[in-house]
Amino acid sequence: MKNAPLTAALRALLIVVLVTFAGFPIYWMASTALNVNAQLYNTGQVPWLQFGNLPELFRELVELPLLRWLFNTGLIAGGTTALSLTMGSILGYALSRFRFHGRGMIGFLMFMTQVIPEALLVVPLYAMFITMGLLNSLWGLVLANVGFSLPVAAFILKSAMDAIPYEIEESATIDNCPRVGILTFIILPLIAPSLAAAAVISFFAGWNEFLFAATFLMDRELWPTSVGLASFIGQYETPLSAVMGAALVFSLPAVAFFLLVQRKIVAGLTSGAVKG
């Protein structure tokens, strides 16, 4: 191993480059948020973090309807999570525990949902929501989102349930405990980490969603953060530092939770895709 130091140096250099590429945009988001708009548009951006401008940033943020947006975003994300987890766990349980006709077909349909572009469903869902009176409603949006997150949740939960030995629920079956009871009180607590991963994926699928929200919600009062922030794109006079500050606030929970459950997400996604 005569060239070990050289390899180590190259590796360190590579990691520095990667960290710069991966981290710079987030740093720049923070740096922009902590500039005042006059600097951004006239004298040029100050590249470091001017924490002294925090009060100014806060004052600007209050002028945006950010709390309203975050509240709507939370409702959409919460609804998407509740529906995805309820249906995802019964679907995952059935796929994990039963062998029945059409099981392979269901697997194929679930895989299909991951191939269908959202943009393809916008118009038919729009037409459907007009007739169902779900246009311009957060409920309609939740219903549209769940179609994409439910199969992912089911994949993750199924692969976690596959690892739970059947003996554990056998005694409960003999005691005539209904299956739904077994699922809720015996299986789900055992796979809590995977349940958390499925919850994070569904929650932030709803949290981040833009296309459906931008199409189905006309009322500004109902806008989630994604649509609210995107509405600044292409505007002539953007309160840039406030927008970046809001984007940072919007991103922070997603980053924190994804980092927390990263490994479980990978396990669920890849096993789902392998077996799909």
């Binding site: 990691i15 960290v19 720049w28 922030l229 995107a230």
Partner: peptide, 24 residues
């Protein structure tokens, strides 16, 4: 910590990512 930084791009919502890249 480096692993966490490297995962930023994956975790940041699309609209937030687009906004900062538009500015960059």
């Amino acid at each position: 910590i480096i692993r966490a930084i490297l995962l930023f791009g994956w975790a940041v919502p699309n609209v937030a990512a687009t906004l900062v890249w538009l500015w960059i």
